[in-house]
Design a protein around this nucleic acid. Structure first.
Lengths: 104, 104
DNA sequence: CCTGTTACTACATTTTATGTAGCGATTCAT
DNA sequence: ATGAATCGCTACATAAAATGTAGTAACAGG
């Protein structure tokens, strides 16, 4: 069992590694935009609002390394089983964000 | 009811604004480190691994603007009621991250 | 061969974060 | 009243990360 070092995570605690990964620019948006169906590289790039291909590719590579996303040449990028589990944990955010917006 | 424009969010959809806010560097970590008790500025800075005071202050200001965090001069920085609600949604991540780490 | 699509890379410019020092206010002991 | 300690926070030069634009290589169909 190999432990990979992740940016900003000195502890090796999974939660820290996860928060670090998810806290990188565009990562949450990428996962979110993959919630319904597989997406092509350019499609994904457009959906998240036109981030540079450089960074889209870098993030997708990180997400693939984390086994949350995979690339099917036929269909495009999509969430792995693991990625879908993570997404499910995030779904309550959608509803809550509406409440939050009203409170602002 | 005023809608604030948030970086990367052209839609005005709360979920996008939220994902954008949470996706900024150190934000998830800051919220996480406030999960148990109020923390002082420097204490918080140390807990998240020594980010520069410049950026810690910038993020805390954003979190205060978002009404997720507040500063009590007596006790330090702490989550607002809203912030605590958000944290509760994140708690399942802790357990899941252990499973995820094993899958890597 | 030409055209279009795919994912992706190169690289100069711009934006963001870091690291270090220090400020102004407050509290507390001498 | 003076000096030390702590508080949140700012200034600013350096370093790292993201952007924007162009372009590459691989493949498909006409």
């Amino acid at each position: 069992m190999v432990k990979k070092k992740v940016r900003g995570s000195t502890s090796g605690r999974p939660i820290m590694a996860l928060l670090d990964l998810l806290g990188r620019r565009w990562v949450l948006r990428l996962v979110w935009e993959l919630r319904e169906e597989p997406r092509r590289f350019r499609e994904l790039q457009a959906l998240i609002g036109g981030a540079s291909p450089t960074i889209v590719n870098a993030r997708l590579r990180e997400l693939r390394a984390a086994k949350l996303v995979e690339l099917d040449p036929e269909a495009g990028y999509r969430l792995t089983a693991l990625g879908q589990e993570l997404l499910k944990l995030f779904l309550p955010l959608h509803l809550w964000s509406e409440k939050w917006a009203k409170a602002l």
